[in-house]
Design a protein around this nucleic acid. Structure first.
Length: 322
DNA sequence: CCAAGTCAAGTCAGA
DNA sequence: TCTGACTTGACTTGG
């Protein structure tokens, strides 16, 4: 028996005027003559993003959805090197607290997935530093919400830099410069062009980091004759020391031609074929749906899953695999 | 009012 | 060595 929970990413297509990712570019910021007013505006946009994020959390709770990925754009320009005087943690103390209270009250599993510019394996110190700044911002937001930081932030391995083996070793080298708190916050995901499941497992086992298996990425990028299920026990084992259930990503190719892009919805057959292979191997698995139609893709999959005989609905977006 | 263009970041393929 | 595609949603600008 395995419990399966579904989650979705960042925003709801059902809630109107509810973007958690409103923004201000640095170019816009600079155009404002009054710096103090510009920083106040950053605060107002951030507060509105957090308020909208809270609306989404409540919407989730109302639909028994217990898994959600925060937008990484909650705080515009949060780690811009020229705007160090924007003390967003202090400015947003209250709304962060409230958001965190609701997360804890609704027992929502929340995490982050910073964009692909966070590159811990970069050979350039300045890019590593920028990446660490971005990760610190994510850690600070979790702290502001009183959400335990452990295993709340998933990233990719990074660039290949013309030599994949060397790039993997560079990751291990750079890991030594990553503060322990940030190390503990991270999970690693196999990607769709460079680092396969096996590459990522190598790092996860070496560095004791949980692996987030992306099934779609695996289909797009794997070794010859690679059968993911042969490695599944290792994936599950990477979560042995986590207080959180195993996490994975699911999405479907947009088309054969545009294989790596995410489709509007998730193909239930593809998803179920995955689930039947891992059934019983772990007590619980949380599946993050990465589809263009966000929560609507989740709602559709929820409906479709009920038609499979081995699936029993617990409530909302939680199921039992028999 | 809608469509097209811009913004941010780093990598990588191709010129 | 440089340029543009890649990706994403929000936002601005042009018609």
């Amino acid at each position: 028996m395995t419990i399966v929970r579904l989650g979705f990413v960042a925003m709801s297509v059902n809630l109107k005027n509810c973007s958690p990712s409103q923004t201000m570019t640095y170019a816009q910021f600079q155009r404002l003559k009054d710096r103090e007013a510009a920083i106040e505006k950053l605060g107002r946009i951030s507060a509105s993003n957090l308020e909208n994020c809270l609306r989404i959390i409540k919407h989730n709770a109302g639909h028994d959805i217990q898994f959600f990925r925060f937008s990484s754009k909650l705080i515009p320009l949060a780690n811009h090197p020229e705007i160090k005087d924007f003390n967003y943690l202090r400015t947003l103390r209250e709304p962060l607290h409230e958001l965190g209270n609701w997360v804890s009250k609704t027992k929502m599993r929340v995490d982050f997935h910073p964009d692909h510019f966070v590159l811990l394996n970069s050979p350039k110190p300045e890019i590593l530093n920028t990446s660490l700044r971005t990760l610190s911002m994510h850690e600070a937001l979790l702290r502001g919400m009183n959400v335990p930081h452990e295993h709340r932030c998933v990233i990719h391995v990074g660039g290949a830099y013309n030599d994949k083996e060397k790039a993997l070793e560079q990751f291990i080298h750079n890991w030594g410069f990553v503060p322990v708190k940030i190390q503990n916050m991270l999970m690693l995901e196999n990607d769709d062009t460079t680092f396969t499941l096996q590459d990522t497992l190598y790092l996860c086992e070496k560095l004791a980091v949980p692996l987030v298996f992306d099934y779609h990425h695996h289909l797009a990028n794997h070794e010859k004759d690679s059968n993911w299920s042969r490695h599944w026990d290792r994936v599950a084992a990477s979560w042995d020391h986590s207080s959180l259930p195993v996490k994975m990503h699911i999405s479907s190719p947009r088309s054969e031609r545009d294989f790596n892009a995410h489709a509007e919805f998730v193909d239930p057959e593809l998803f179920m074929s995955f689930l039947s292979e891992i059934k019983g191997s772990v007590p619980q698995i949380d599946c993050m749906i990465e589809a263009k139609q966000k929560d609507d893709a989740l709602f559709q999959l929820m409906e479709q899953m009920c038609s499979f005989p081995e699936v029993e609905k617990i409530d909302g977006a939680s199921f039992l695999l028999k």
